[in-house]
């Protein structure tokens, strides 16, 4: 009972940070939701900003309401979907065609508590995280310059010199291959704690690279990526619970 409460609290804490990061982003810089209605649909800027801000604040309201009825987590998932979907619609960055799939962990993370069955809980998170890994892997293989710069900078912090772009591109390519491989393996060997543990480690490490690279400007991007490591952590807890002979739904 105690651990149930604790896990629930951890989930809500992670989700809270994820929502707050997006909300700060909305108020500070705006998102592609507002850009779409302002630039593409021709709305007044105030109206398009108001729309995305109301939508962002609603996510917090749904978050509060989800303590009462967990179905309120569904519109939070829709909120994250809308952010990614309008990124796809607006485009203008590397891999914009893949963004919804690459962001699937963020999109499905709020759904964790919606399902009663631990099996469904696990599947929804697993599909989300695997998709995020596989599509980030594809982007890496395609030579996403964002990943390239993260690698070059991290290397320079450790070794005090810049690696060549050619070498970095090759390394990022193979990192992409390994991301795809691990994403697929996680779907096949879904009870293997080492594979899921690696997803959690790599998800955390790559999220952490944002504040390392951007400094203060990377804090929000870090929290936006909370599901990249929080979801695998919850999957591990579910695996452990499912192994238990006296298995009862975790939450």
């Amino acid at each position: 009972m105690q651990s149930k409460k604790m896990i629930k609290s951890i989930f809500y804490a992670f989700l809270f940070f994820q929502i707050m990061a997006s909300l700060i982003n909305i108020f500070k810089y705006g998102t592609d939701i507002g850009s779409y209605f302002f630039l593409t649909r021709g709305w007044a800027e105030d109206s398009s900003l108001l729309l995305e801000r109301v939508w962002g604040v609603s996510a917090i309201a749904f978050f509060a309401l989800s303590f009462w009825k967990r179905q309120f987590l569904i519109p939070i998932s829709l909120f994250f979907f809308s952010i990614s979907f309008f990124k796809y619609v607006q485009g203008g960055f590397f891999g914009s065609d893949l963004v919804v799939y690459a962001h699937l962990a963020r999109i499905v993370f709020p759904l964790f508590l919606v399902f009663k069955s631990d099996i469904y809980k696990k599947w929804v998170l697993l599909i989300g995280v695997a998709s995020t890994f596989i599509f980030h892997g594809i982007e890496a293989m395609m030579g996403n310059p964002e990943f390239l710069d993260l690698f070059i900078y991290f290397y320079s912090v450790i070794f005090k010199s810049f690696p060549s772009e050619q070498l970095s591109t090759q390394i990022i390519y193979w990192v992409g291959v390994s991301d795809i491989l691990v994403g697929v393996l996680a779907l096949i060997f879904r009870k293997n704690i080492f594979i899921i543990g690696y997803l959690a480690f790599w998800g955390f490490f790559t999220a952490l690279l944002r504040p390392i690279f951007y400094g203060q400007d990377g804090i929000i991007p870090f929290f936006e990526r909370v599901p990249h490591f929080a979801a695998p952590i919850l999957i591990i807890l579910l695996i452990k619970n499912l192994k238990n002979r006296n298995h009862r739904s975790l939450l």
């Binding site: 590397f94 070059i152 772009e165």
Partner: peptide
């Protein structure tokens, strides 16, 4: 600004 800022371009 669409490609690596730290690789060949920075050099």
């Amino acid at each position: 600004t669409n490609i690596s800022h730290l690789g060949k371009q920075r050099k």
